[in-house]
Amino acid sequence: MTRKRRRLYMVLAAMSILAGAAALVLGALQSELTYFYSPTDLAAGSAPAGRSIRLGGLVEEGSVERLDDGVTTSFRVTDLTSSVPVTYRGLLPDLFREGQGVVTEGSLSADGAFVAREVLAKHDENYMPREVTDALKKSGQWRDPTEATE
Protein backbone atom coordinates (compact mmCIF):
# COMPACT_ATOMS: atom_id res chain seq x y z
CA MET A 1 0.00 0.00 0.00
CA THR A 2 1.61 3.24 -1.05
CA ARG A 3 1.15 6.53 0.67
CA LYS A 4 -0.72 7.84 -2.37
CA ARG A 5 -3.16 4.91 -2.44
CA ARG A 6 -3.82 5.31 1.27
CA ARG A 7 -4.51 8.98 0.84
CA LEU A 8 -6.85 8.20 -2.04
CA TYR A 9 -8.85 5.78 0.12
CA MET A 10 -9.08 8.26 2.95
CA VAL A 11 -10.17 11.06 0.66
CA LEU A 12 -12.77 8.79 -0.93
CA ALA A 13 -14.13 7.76 2.47
CA ALA A 14 -14.24 11.35 3.64
CA MET A 15 -15.95 12.47 0.43
CA SER A 16 -18.62 9.79 0.59
CA ILE A 17 -19.38 10.51 4.24
CA LEU A 18 -19.52 14.23 3.53
CA ALA A 19 -21.77 13.69 0.54
CA GLY A 20 -24.09 11.49 2.58
CA ALA A 21 -24.21 14.03 5.38
CA ALA A 22 -24.80 16.89 2.94
CA ALA A 23 -27.71 14.99 1.39
CA LEU A 24 -29.22 14.41 4.83
CA VAL A 25 -28.75 18.03 5.85
CA LEU A 26 -30.19 19.42 2.63
CA GLY A 27 -33.16 17.10 2.86
CA ALA A 28 -33.82 18.09 6.44
CA LEU A 29 -33.42 21.79 5.66
CA GLN A 30 -36.12 21.41 3.03
CA SER A 31 -38.69 19.89 5.33
CA GLU A 32 -37.75 20.31 8.95
CA LEU A 33 -37.32 24.02 9.47
CA THR A 34 -39.84 25.73 11.64
CA TYR A 35 -40.57 29.19 10.31
CA PHE A 36 -41.55 32.00 12.56
CA TYR A 37 -44.76 33.95 11.93
CA SER A 38 -46.37 36.92 13.60
CA PRO A 39 -50.14 37.17 14.12
CA THR A 40 -50.31 39.70 11.26
CA ASP A 41 -48.63 37.21 8.93
CA LEU A 42 -51.23 34.61 9.87
CA ALA A 43 -54.09 37.06 9.46
CA ALA A 44 -52.77 37.90 5.99
CA GLY A 45 -52.95 34.23 5.15
CA SER A 46 -49.26 33.88 4.35
CA ALA A 47 -48.73 30.79 6.48
CA PRO A 48 -49.45 27.32 5.16
CA ALA A 49 -52.05 25.28 7.01
CA GLY A 50 -50.90 22.00 8.52
CA ARG A 51 -47.19 22.76 8.53
CA SER A 52 -45.33 23.17 11.79
CA ILE A 53 -44.65 26.84 12.48
CA ARG A 54 -43.91 29.12 15.39
CA LEU A 55 -46.19 31.95 16.35
CA GLY A 56 -45.02 34.67 18.68
CA GLY A 57 -46.53 37.75 20.24
CA LEU A 58 -48.14 38.93 23.43
CA VAL A 59 -50.81 36.97 25.24
CA GLU A 60 -53.84 39.23 24.88
CA GLU A 61 -55.22 40.65 28.11
CA GLY A 62 -58.32 38.84 29.32
CA SER A 63 -58.23 36.24 26.58
CA VAL A 64 -57.00 33.24 28.57
CA GLU A 65 -59.72 30.73 29.21
CA ARG A 66 -59.68 27.16 30.35
CA LEU A 67 -62.04 24.97 28.36
CA ASP A 68 -64.49 22.55 29.93
CA ASP A 69 -62.21 19.53 29.77
CA GLY A 70 -60.00 21.34 32.27
CA VAL A 71 -56.71 20.78 30.49
CA THR A 72 -57.15 22.72 27.26
CA THR A 73 -56.45 26.42 27.39
CA SER A 74 -57.48 28.91 24.76
CA PHE A 75 -55.98 32.37 24.43
CA ARG A 76 -55.22 34.95 21.79
CA VAL A 77 -51.75 35.94 20.68
CA THR A 78 -51.47 39.50 19.46
CA ASP A 79 -48.87 41.80 17.97
CA LEU A 80 -51.10 44.80 18.69
CA THR A 81 -52.29 44.82 15.06
CA SER A 82 -53.86 41.41 14.62
CA SER A 83 -54.54 38.60 16.98
CA VAL A 84 -54.84 34.87 16.47
CA PRO A 85 -56.82 32.41 18.59
CA VAL A 86 -54.68 29.61 19.98
CA THR A 87 -55.63 26.41 21.75
CA TYR A 88 -53.21 24.36 23.75
CA ARG A 89 -53.75 21.11 25.58
CA GLY A 90 -51.38 20.64 28.47
CA LEU A 91 -49.70 22.45 31.31
CA LEU A 92 -48.72 26.00 30.53
CA PRO A 93 -45.18 26.97 31.39
CA ASP A 94 -44.56 28.73 34.69
CA LEU A 95 -43.90 32.08 33.08
CA PHE A 96 -47.03 32.18 30.92
CA ARG A 97 -49.02 35.30 31.76
CA GLU A 98 -51.48 37.66 30.15
CA GLY A 99 -49.75 40.63 28.56
CA GLN A 100 -46.41 38.85 28.45
CA GLY A 101 -44.52 37.60 25.45
CA VAL A 102 -44.99 34.03 24.36
CA VAL A 103 -43.79 31.76 21.57
CA THR A 104 -45.97 28.81 20.58
CA GLU A 105 -45.14 26.01 18.21
CA GLY A 106 -47.85 24.16 16.37
CA SER A 107 -49.85 24.38 13.19
CA LEU A 108 -52.78 26.23 11.70
CA SER A 109 -55.99 24.26 11.51
CA ALA A 110 -58.37 24.58 8.56
CA ASP A 111 -60.65 27.02 10.44
CA GLY A 112 -57.83 29.51 11.01
CA ALA A 113 -57.22 28.69 14.66
CA PHE A 114 -53.73 27.87 15.77
CA VAL A 115 -53.30 24.56 17.55
CA ALA A 116 -50.21 24.71 19.71
CA ARG A 117 -48.23 21.59 20.49
CA GLU A 118 -45.82 23.48 22.65
CA VAL A 119 -45.87 26.78 24.47
CA LEU A 120 -42.43 28.15 25.16
CA ALA A 121 -41.60 30.70 27.78
CA LYS A 122 -38.16 31.99 28.42
CA HIS A 123 -36.30 31.46 31.65
CA ASP A 124 -35.65 35.16 31.63
CA GLU A 125 -38.33 36.90 33.61
CA ASN A 126 -37.07 40.37 32.78
CA TYR A 127 -38.30 40.69 29.26
CA MET A 128 -39.85 38.95 26.33
CA PRO A 129 -38.31 36.59 23.78
CA ARG A 130 -36.50 38.24 20.91
CA GLU A 131 -38.75 36.55 18.38
CA VAL A 132 -41.72 38.25 19.99
CA THR A 133 -39.98 41.59 19.91
CA ASP A 134 -39.26 41.14 16.24
CA ALA A 135 -42.83 40.12 15.53
CA LEU A 136 -44.05 43.29 17.15
CA LYS A 137 -41.51 45.38 15.31
CA LYS A 138 -42.51 43.73 12.07
CA SER A 139 -46.19 44.38 12.64
CA GLY A 140 -45.17 48.01 12.28
CA GLN A 141 -47.10 49.00 15.36
CA TRP A 142 -44.28 50.78 17.00
CA ARG A 143 -43.38 52.75 13.92
CA ASP A 144 -46.89 54.13 13.46
CA PRO A 145 -46.69 56.92 16.03
CA THR A 146 -44.36 59.18 14.03
CA GLU A 147 -46.80 59.16 11.16
CA ALA A 148 -49.73 59.54 13.54
CA THR A 149 -48.29 62.62 15.21
CA GLU A 150 -47.33 64.43 12.04
Binding site: A21, L24, A28, Y35, S52
Partner: peptide
Protein backbone atom coordinates in the same frame (compact mmCIF):
# COMPACT_ATOMS: atom_id res chain seq x y z
CA UNK B 1 -34.34 38.03 7.13
CA UNK B 2 -36.55 34.98 7.70
CA UNK B 3 -36.86 33.80 11.25
CA UNK B 4 -36.69 30.09 11.77
CA UNK B 5 -35.90 27.65 14.46
CA UNK B 6 -34.25 24.31 13.97
CA UNK B 7 -35.73 21.72 16.26
CA UNK B 8 -35.43 18.03 17.04
CA UNK B 9 -36.84 16.82 13.66
CA UNK B 10 -33.80 18.30 11.89
CA UNK B 11 -31.36 16.51 14.16
CA UNK B 12 -33.34 13.27 13.98
CA UNK B 13 -32.90 13.32 10.23
CA UNK B 14 -29.23 14.32 10.14
CA UNK B 15 -27.35 13.61 13.35
CA UNK B 16 -29.03 10.31 14.16
CA UNK B 17 -28.39 8.62 10.77
CA UNK B 18 -24.70 9.56 11.01
Amino acid sequence: GDKISVGPPFYNKTFVPI
